[in-house]
């Protein structure tokens, strides 16, 4: 059964140098309060896997962790809405690896589903295609299957995934309202430890409504957004 913990206990799971998965499109579907607590705790040298660079207009967001220099390497699909990411990328203070959004989803899914990678037509003939840097400093390569070229995208895995739930129950089951679910489901599979920040914690939810099974979720934190 998942454990309901304080924000301090949750953040104690995260150490310097870890790889963390951060779902969300800007702030929608992100565990913004946990991210804020990580910033306050000063945990550094983090590798972050996220769709974007957080919401710079919001006080509590991945953007504040990037601003404070606690992120050493960011995997992202779109960084245009947080200009500081591009600045840090250009001045070399943060490494940024860009991945097409669909390939990002599949790399994470492969990491969580026990697959050795995925083969996608996306990215061929582009700067993120053949020969581009991939996980662990490897190079992306083209694999021809029955006459059609595909790009091998290696799996992404993390030490911790910080997921968001509209509602979590004491068993760790999570449901998410709206399109805030985005990367939450795949990321819940692809990390050693899954921590959920929930707007609301209840005793037990209808099994038909569960989006992320409780068996994947280790810790639940009250996000206080009721």
């Amino acid at each position: 059964m998942a454990k309901i913990v304080s924000m301090q206990e949750a953040v104690a799971q995260i150490k310097d140098g870890m790889t963390i998965m951060v779902p969300g499109f800007l702030s929608a579907g992100a565990a913004n309060e946990i991210l804020h607590a990580i910033k306050e705790a000063g945990i550094k040298d983090l590798t972050v896997i996220c769709n974007d660079g957080g919401d710079p207009k919001r006080e509590h967001s991945l953007a504040e962790l990037i601003h404070s220099g606690q992120v050493a390497h960011l995997w992202a699909t779109h960084i245009g809405l947080n200009p500081e990411v591009g600045q840090k990328m250009n001045d070399g203070s943060m490494k940024v690896t860009l991945v097409p959004q669909g390939s990002m989803a599949e790399k994470i899914r492969a990491g969580g589903y026990g697959l050795g990678g995925v083969l996608t037509p996306t990215g061929i003939g582009t700067p993120v295609g053949d020969g581009a840097e991939d996980v662990g400093g490897t190079k992306k390569q083209i694999i021809n299957i029955d006459g059609k070229d595909f790009l091998l995208e290696r799996p992404l895995h993390a030490d911790v995934a910080l997921i968001y739930g509209s509602v979590a129950d004491k068993y760790g089951n999570v449901k998410i309202h709206g399109d805030a679910r985005n990367f939450n489901i795949v990321m819940a599979f692809a990390a050693d430890t899954v921590i959920c920040q929930a707007d609301e914690i209840i005793d037990m939810m209808d099994p038909d409504e569960v989006l992320i099974p409780g068996a994947l979720v280790k810790y639940i934190v009250d996000g206080g957004n009721k």
């Binding site: 974007d52 779109h78 860009l98 097409p100 959004q101 390939s103 582009t126 993120v128």
Partner: peptide, 11 residues
């Protein structure tokens, strides 16, 4: 120039 990233466009 500043790189915004490809987002979902390539897929």
């Amino acid at each position: 120039k500043m790189v915004p990233g490809m987002g979902g466009a390539m897929d």
